[in-house]
């Protein structure tokens, strides 16, 4: 737990201009540090800018004010050190599962046989053995997300940026994927930033949960949620329920504030 900070976010603000209307302040001087090999969840009411913060770390959006350092370098532009997983999977629909997983590997100087072996290993890891030659359109939502996770893990990024990855899945698939993600994380031990609006999910998966305020988004509180989660009954344990309650109260206050702001 005392690993050095890998991602340093300092006083980051972000504006965006919607198609109609005035400029909106999405993030206001956000500061946050993420430690190496840590699993951090970002939660907050919808529209609080948690995905925007993730995209800024990923280098997909330009940083206007403040700075974001990743491994000591400014996060300018996306790179294979930061793997991203989206809610809508973002698999290339014209490529099979295998070709999707190979895509990131092909950008690296690896011998062909090794690329194939690595791709197969990660397809096996996420439990998609036998579906290598399927196109994404023939997979269920859960399988698509497994494929997307395999694709991102395969090119061995130093950290995973996950943008509500299970938001489009049904409840059963979702809870199954959560425990599988936890198992994978324990195997690979990558730094993970996990955006979600599901408080249970955040408390179950993460070691720390950062709660954001309603727009403009700021970090409201950081809750330590690192306790033993191997117990199959963990969802009913007192510590789990207490933590969920603590985070939930914080998020609910912000959601209420956001609603009040919308009223004339």
């Amino acid at each position: 737990m005392d690993n050095p900070a890998q991602i340093i976010i300092e006083n980051v603000s972000h504006h965006y201009r919607p198609a109609v209307g005035r400029e909106v302040l999405a993030l206001e001087s956000v500061s946050l540090q993420v430690r190496e090999r840590e699993f951090l969840a970002l939660v907050g009411p919808s529209g609080c800018g948690k995905s925007t913060l993730l995209y800024l770390i990923g280098g997909f959006l330009p940083i206007d004010t403040g700075k974001i350092m990743v491994d000591g370098k400014p996060a300018a532009g996306p790179g294979p050190d930061r793997g991203i997983v989206f809610q809508n999977f973002a698999l290339f629909p014209w490529k099979t599962v295998r070709k999707n997983v190979l895509y990131g590997l092909e950008r690296q100087a690896l011998p062909r046989a090794e690329r194939e072996a690595r791709a197969q290993a990660f397809i096996d890891l996420v439990g998609l053995t036998g579906f290598e030659e399927s196109y994404p359109s023939h997979l269920s939502g859960g399988m698509k997300q497994r494929a997307a996770i395999a694709r991102t893990l395969a090119f061995d990024p130093r950290m995973l940026l996950m943008d509500e990855p299970f938001g489009a899945l049904d409840a059963q698939t979702r809870s199954l994927m959560q425990s599988e993600l936890l198992a994978i994380w324990e195997k690979t031990r990558k730094t993970v930033i996990f955006v979600t609006h599901d408080v249970h999910e955040a408390v179950y998966l993460a070691e720390r949960v950062a709660v954001m305020t309603a727009r403009p988004g700021r970090i409201k509180a950081i809750i330590d949620t690192s306790f033993d989660k191997d117990d199959p009954e963990v969802h009913r344990s007192k510590i789990f329920v207490d933590k969920v309650d603590e985070v939930w109260t914080l998020v609910r206050d912000e959601a209420v504030k956001a609603l009040e702001k919308q009223r004339p």
Binding site: F60, F86, A90, F92, W94, G104, R107, Q108, R151, F155
Partner: peptide, 26 residues
């Protein structure tokens, strides 16, 4: 073309014409 597909390709190290050929054209 889906913004997230473009971002995915770039996060996996694809740039410029590569992104055009691999994502925009398909």
């Amino acid at each position: 073309s889906d913004q997230h597909l473009l971002w995915s390709a770039r996060s996996m190290g694809a740039r410029g014409l590569r992104v055009m050929w691999d994502v925009v054209v398909p």
